[in-house]
Design a protein around this nucleic acid. Sequence first.
DNA 1: ACTCATTAGTGGACGCTGTCCACGTTACGA
DNA 2: TCGTAACGTGGACAGCGTCCACTAATGAGT
Lengths: 216, 216
Amino acid sequence: MTSDESRETTGTRQRRPRGAVRDGLIAAGVELARAGGPDAVVLREAARMVGVVPNAAYRHFADRGELLAAVCAAAMRELAARMAAGTARVRGKYGDAAAARRRLHAIGRAYLEFAREQPGLFETAFALPHQHAYAAQDGGATHSPMPLDQLRAVLDELTDAGVLSKQRRPGLEYPIWSTVHGLAVLTGQGPLREVAAGSRVHLEKVTRTFIEAGLS
Amino acid sequence: MTSDESRETTGTRQRRPRGAVRDGLIAAGVELARAGGPDAVVLREAARMVGVVPNAAYRHFADRGELLAAVCAAAMRELAARMAAGTARVRGKYGDAAAARRRLHAIGRAYLEFAREQPGLFETAFALPHQHAYAAQDGGATHSPMPLDQLRAVLDELTDAGVLSKQRRPGLEYPIWSTVHGLAVLTGQGPLREVAAGSRVHLEKVTRTFIEAGLS
DNA sequence: ACTCATTAGTGGACGCTGTCCACGTTACGA
DNA sequence: TCGTAACGTGGACAGCGTCCACTAATGAGT
């Protein structure tokens, strides 16, 4: 009604600034994933949200899988940021045993919180299509380290603090990550989803005790 | 070529025995899931494999989700059967500490083996749509207990054998299941999928040590 | 400043999917 | 035996991912 004259004939309606459509598609995809998981990232809908015709997306992504890969990377970054924020809130300088323990707990708590509050994004973060590698698209912004690296850092600190013996340290990040991730998945969309509704704190406490037992 | 006369007009080509179409659709869905995970369970393709028109499926399932739910249940049953077979192979009578430990190990090993050898079915087993409950369709065949129940039984045996103290026992099935499931997911389709290719046995050994530490 | 190749967006189409409706046929209980 | 409910069919629709041909804006090189 206001200005319908700009696209009188055919061709381009109006050109967005450099990379705006690409970023917009990813942002739209993130919102779709937030609401409905990776399957909800539908190319046509994302294009609609950006205000562009579906085919325009093919100028920026080879196919839907490539768009989804970018959305997955963004979701993973949001998870990493959440974890980093969680550990940053813990006071106590590096090497203090109690503080290091609290940081490990904070990492796990942030992980589970994210999985619970943003189930769609959490699922999407791990739904990277097998074909499309991460593409390491560094947009200039400085990101938080990946979950595995953050966990490694805390475990190294626990070793330096003497809480964790050097003998037990190697490779310990894998079973610990597995435990927390498994709990997130099983209680999120998995078979424990009703169990978790009633006794979430109990599950978390048991898991925490279990992990701490695995340290020694 | 042989007998094309049976469906000269319109209507039913030929009627299958009672429940054959339903069972066939589930079986076809299982094969699709085996090859490509839950997203590969496409209603029309399953109907095609059974040799029936797509709409026939709607006489047996309300929608695709309900078919998928049945396929998920079948996949979960196959996983449970695999685990039961794994523990059944372990010799030693109930209450023997060493045998109980071996049974716990066998359960976890079977779980990870199934996830690795049948990634599509494994993913599908945990892809139960949120709307459709399990529907507990007991076809008369006797099934193995669900994974959680099998794990509980072994942990109870470990308690009876004195390996696991009664104090640590309550709720321990959850973190242990989480650990094994998390490892399966992360090394299967997750971020550890290349890591696992080279050092699978190492990951499993570290995880086993971690779980055994959590018992005491 | 003007040209011109590259880039970015449009319009239309195709095949595939899940799902609905109306119809005909078969089987089974009354 | 008959009628009714269960079962399978045919045709249709909208939405999806993707391909092709076309056009308008952009920016580099002269």
